[in-house]
């Protein structure tokens, strides 16, 4: 790892100020991607601004069907939240499938979505739940937040403080995971709400997380595990790598959608 300077912020304002005074600095949340990347010398931030000690960034509130999760809330806390489970168990199940127990104790929802790894789990949930990403300066709809591979709408120094969403009538997540990394080779989150059906796919798209409109239409017509089977998914838009070809991923999108509907019940 290259040399770096560590700063511990105790408030959102302090973190944002620290970040703005260090051009080559980075926010450090759980660090489950950033520290590993720094160890490989693929990232070399001059300064790290630690967010783990900012109380305002932590915690979960459920008000009726509105769920708000602080940006520095670890995956393990989402997975074990009885309040969230009562209104949207799918997000708890998703959190419980990220990495391994030790990673879930450190990794955070804000870090996951700000990094926008094309195989990360949370982006699919945020997009399918039509979540709002709350930052230190504005609110961004998930639809506009995830803009490409490791790319988001976040401006330089902008900090994700929380996410919020309305719990849908039904939701489910299914992932075909890479057995070594636990990342999604393909993961599908389905949500059925008053506003319609939304289906988001992670791990497969060549431009990151995306909505599968063909499956949405099929499930809107008939909410059944068999509905995604006939939906057309174009492999031309999907990733191909040593783990799975684009054609295989196209099939996995349909199969994971089926399993997600079964999980949603």
């Amino acid at each position: 790892m290259y040399a770096t300077s560590y700063h511990r912020a105790s408030s959102v304002d302090e973190a944002v100020n620290l970040r703005s005074s260090h051009d080559e600095g980075r926010y450090l949340s759980g660090g489950m991607t950033l520290i590993a990347t720094m160890k490989q010398r693929l990232a070399a931030p001059s300064d790290l601004i630690d967010l783990r000690h900012i109380a305002a960034l932590k915690g979960i509130t459920v008000d009726g069907h509105t769920v708000r999760i602080g940006g520095a809330t670890p995956h393990a806390d989402v997975a074990s939240s009885a309040a969230v489970r009562a209104v949207c168990p799918a997000i708890c199940e998703l959190a419980a499938m990220i990495g391994d127990p030790h990673v879930r104790h450190m990794g955070t929802i804000g870090g996951s979505i700000a990094n926008n790894d094309p195989a990360a789990d949370y982006p699919a949930a945020m997009l399918a739940l039509a979540a709002t990403i709350i930052t230190d300066r504005r609110e961004i709809p998930a639809e506009e937040f995830f803009t490409g591979l490791f790319e988001t709408a976040l401006e330089e120094g902008e900090l994700v403080t929380a996410v919020s969403f309305e719990a849908p009538e039904k939701a489910g997540y299914a992932k075909f995971r890479n057995p070594a990394s636990r990342y999604a080779i393909t993961g599908v989150f389905v949500a059925k709400a008053a506003g319609g059906v939304r289906v988001a796919v992670t791990g497969a798209g060549s431009n990151g997380v995306f909505r599968a409109e063909t499956i949405e239409a099929a499930l809107a017509a008939d909410w059944s595990p068999e509905s995604p089977k006939a939906a057309s998914i174009d492999p031309a838009d999907l990733m191909s790598d040593m783990h799975a070809s684009a054609e295989y991923r196209a099939n996995l999108v349909r199969v994971m959608a089926k399993r997600a509907v079964i999980a949603a019940g």
């Binding site: 660090g31 590993a36 127990p101 104790h105 450190m106």
Partner: peptide, 12 residues
């Protein structure tokens, strides 16, 4: 809580 100490800085 269990964590991987190879993925955390001592200063953290």
């Amino acid at each position: 809580r269990s964590v991987k100490s190879c993925s955390i800085l001592a200063v953290q």
